[in-house]
Design a protein around this nucleic acid. Structure first.
Lengths: 334, 334
DNA sequence: CTGTTAGCGCATTCAT
DNA sequence: ATGAATGCGCTAACAG
């Protein structure tokens, strides 16, 4: 009981209760966001007392009993995992709208990831959004004291909800676009196929090529980066002259574009058509008019938030939510 | 006392103590990272018991008494405030190395910022890194229950430590570079001067122009973005032909470069020299060889971490830590 | 060096 | 509808 609230100490709910002349329990109920039974008069007095004292509930103490911190973790390998900043900006903003705050975990260079995660508040978050492919769903579930692990990295399982881009649709559109323009021979520039997402992506391209009777002259391997695209650019014609080059990231396409800028006039191809992937906002810059494949960020974020806001909407066994990708024509593809 | 640890409940320190046959206090001390007096034998037993039970301390409970959560908040307006991703990536990584986790707050679109901050765990963080210019030091201190608010937005005061780029050095170098190449007439493209950082930056340019006897034909105002640079590009020659154009952001310089790409051959100027600001990693892309001004990100992060790791090293009244900027020549400046 | 005790601030029984 | 009492899991203060 705080008969004499120390001037330097932050007011607690006991102080509020004392000032309002009620018990702590009543004060707690009156201050609760949930509608709990409290006499109207007392509720009023409690609210006024809280106001007057500048009372702020201690959320650490609260979470001790409620077992909820209103915190969600976002796990990335590096910052660049969020292939586009606009996506992350939107995601962060929307999560905050839910009244939750975001703790950002970069596991790229952490040696003992599990220890690192366990020894921080992140262990107690209400939900985990996994962009990094550092672990599969089962491992992630073991690493956090939460039932809600949202797999966005393609390594999910039936126990955890997942939201994934449906890459097939966009890739099919892009390849059809090329085929319709008379493309016959193509080159594919990929990232490392260690991530399952990339493996799927590559399969989609292969299938689409086969369907349209396109000939795959060669497959070059990069690491999604601009520099690796630049490097791939040098060996682009090693296996013959392609009519089109498909890249599994915009950054690599930009590297290639820069190596072969002479083959483009006003961004339009004279030697081969160029297709990227991700629909980076950067492709709006004049110098990199890279035709790309992407999904509506707003839809993607909406699906994530739907699950975050109402975890009950997912039950084990449900398939991943799919957000369709679409082909985004730009001059590099003619 | 947990005589019979429920199988579904996570083991607490009481369980560990019981299994090890010691009191909770001893278990607590043995598990502490600080070196506390415990008999070697008991410490061993406690550690084994913890191991065996898979005990993980509840940091929320711990922080309730220690009043420290090992959490630092980073406040930005939008994600793009971290003008370069590489900086943020490094910063995040280094903070984690300190054993702290990062909660990222985007206050850009939040209506009642103060309420938002108070109603989340962020209120309890150990330190706050303020990149956003949404508030001055005094306000920020009121918004968090922490003594450690690190001002990185130029709105600091004597009570809080600050780390700032010393823009003068780099700007002086850039302008000197231009003057040495015979530049006489210049145009300045700025962001909104509402932020004090931008105001300082503009003053530096003006002073440097005056010192070298350069004539400022006109000042165009953008908002740091590529699009605003693009827009400014159209009115570049309204007040005469400049020999050089200085921009207070690389993005704006890139917009201008794209509007006037015909005036550059292989990135080198034929009509006017172009200078940016920020030294974005993007300027390594061939298409945007923008000469720029920047600081060593590693130094900047190191200064921040120095303060974070040892808050005692700052005492009220100390001036901001200054990280020098340098001119980074690239072909756009000839 | 060790065990007992008393909180940290809050939500939640369970009687009334 | 209310209040007294209990517990969340842990650390700190105090005796021994």
């Amino acid at each position: 009981m705080s008969q004499d609230p120390a001037p330097d100490r932050k007011p607690t709910i006991s102080d509020v209760a004392a000032l309002a002349g009620v018990s702590r329990a009543v004060a707690s109920r009156a201050l609760s966001s949930e509608p709990r039974p409290v006499a109207a008069g007392k509720r009023q007095r409690v609210l006024e007392a809280a106001q007057q004292l500048g009372f702020t509930p201690n959320l650490l103490a609260r979470s001790l009993t409620t077992r909820s911190v209103n915190l969600v973790a976002i796990i990335v390998n590096h910052i660049h995992d969020l292939s586009d900043l606009d996506l992350f900006d939107l995601l962060l903003s929307e999560i905050q709208t839910l009244g939750k705050q975001v703790i950002l975990l970069r596991v790229g260079s952490v040696d003992r990831v599990e220890d690192f995660l366990r020894s921080g508040i992140a262990w107690h978050v209400d939900a985990v959004l996994v962009f990094s492919d550092f672990a599969d769903a089962a491992t992630v579930r073991r690493m956090f004291d939460t039932g809600m692990t949202l797999m966005l990295n393609g390594r999910g399982d039936a126990q955890s909800p997942a939201v994934l881009a449906d890459e097939a649709s966009g890739i099919a559109e892009a390849v059809a676009h090329a085929a319709a323009r008379g493309v016959r021979d193509v080159v594919l520039v990929t990232g490392r196929a260690t991530s399952s997402v990339e493996a799927v992506r590559i399969d989609c391209y292969r299938a689409a090529f086969a369907q349209h009777g396109l000939r795959l002259l060669q497959t070059l391997q990069g690491d999604y980066s601009y520099d690796s695209g630049h490097a791939a650019g040098s060996s682009l014609f090693d296996a013959g002259e392609p009519d089109a080059v498909f890249c599994t990231s915009d950054a690599m396409a930009m590297g290639i574009l820069d190596v072969h800028r002479a083959s483009f006039t006003d961004g339009r191809p004279t030697r081969f058509r160029l297709y990227g992937f991700d629909d980076l906002s950067l492709t709006h810059f004049d110098a990199y008019p890279v035709a790309s494949i992407g999904y509506a960020k707003r839809d993607y974020v909406r699906e994530i938030l739907k699950i975050l806001a109402d975890p009950g909407c997912f039950s084990p066994g449900m398939p991943p939510v799919r957000v369709p990708t679409r082909f985004v024509p730009r001059s590099s593809a003619g």
